[in-house]
Simulated scan of single mutants.
Amino acid sequence: MMKNCVMDGDSQQEPEQSVVNRVLSTFIAAVGEDEALSEVAKRLKPVLLDGDTVNEASLRQAIFGDDA
């Protein structure tokens, strides 16, 4: 199994994302394209990609904001 296959020199600049992170990144980018949801996308990114665990409270706050 070839886990860290490098296709060209440019791909060494960023660490390879897992499939889950690629899917979540694509989802967050798609949400961010909607002007009404751009703030939600900004809040979702750290919760889904940067955090160690995802829980209901953190998702609720990211989706609905501080007053959730």
Results as ranks from 00 to 15, higher is better:
1 M>S: 14
1 M>P: 12
2 M>N: 14
2 M>K: 14
2 M>G: 13
2 M>L: 07
3 K>F: 09
4 N>C: 04
4 N>I: 08
5 C>R: 13
5 C>K: 10
6 V>P: 01
6 V>T: 05
6 V>F: 10
6 V>R: 14
7 M>A: 09
7 M>D: 12
7 M>R: 13
7 M>V: 12
8 D>W: 07
9 G>P: 00
9 G>Y: 07
10 D>Q: 10
10 D>T: 09
10 D>E: 11
10 D>I: 09
11 S>N: 11
11 S>Q: 09
12 Q>P: 00
12 Q>A: 07
12 Q>C: 10
13 Q>S: 06
13 Q>K: 14
14 E>N: 04
14 E>W: 02
14 E>S: 06
14 E>H: 10
14 E>T: 05
15 P>T: 10
15 P>W: 02
15 P>L: 07
15 P>A: 06
15 P>M: 01
16 E>W: 01
17 Q>I: 00
17 Q>E: 13
18 S>V: 00
18 S>E: 03
19 V>P: 02
19 V>A: 06
19 V>T: 06
20 V>M: 02
20 V>L: 10
20 V>W: 09
21 N>G: 01
22 R>G: 06
22 R>V: 10
23 V>H: 02
23 V>W: 00
24 L>W: 05
24 L>M: 10
24 L>Q: 12
25 S>P: 02
25 S>L: 07
25 S>G: 15
25 S>D: 13
27 F>K: 02
28 I>D: 08
28 I>A: 06
29 A>H: 07
31 V>T: 03
32 G>E: 01
32 G>Q: 02
33 E>H: 09
33 E>A: 09
34 D>H: 12
35 E>A: 12
35 E>V: 05
36 A>F: 12
36 A>P: 03
37 L>H: 03
37 L>R: 06
37 L>E: 11
39 E>T: 08
39 E>C: 02
40 V>Q: 10
40 V>K: 04
41 A>Q: 09
41 A>K: 05
41 A>M: 06
42 K>M: 11
43 R>I: 04
43 R>S: 11
43 R>N: 14
44 L>V: 05
45 K>Q: 11
45 K>T: 13
47 V>A: 13
48 L>P: 07
49 L>K: 00
50 D>Q: 14
51 G>E: 15
51 G>H: 10
52 D>E: 15
52 D>A: 09
53 T>H: 13
55 N>T: 03
56 E>M: 09
56 E>G: 04
56 E>K: 12
56 E>S: 11
57 A>I: 08
57 A>P: 02
58 S>V: 05
58 S>I: 04
59 L>M: 12
59 L>W: 00
59 L>C: 10
61 Q>D: 13
62 A>F: 03
62 A>I: 09
62 A>E: 04
64 F>W: 15
64 F>S: 05
64 F>H: 15
65 G>H: 00
65 G>W: 00
65 G>N: 04
66 D>E: 14
67 D>G: 12
67 D>R: 07
67 D>S: 15
68 A>S: 13
68 A>M: 02
68 A>C: 07
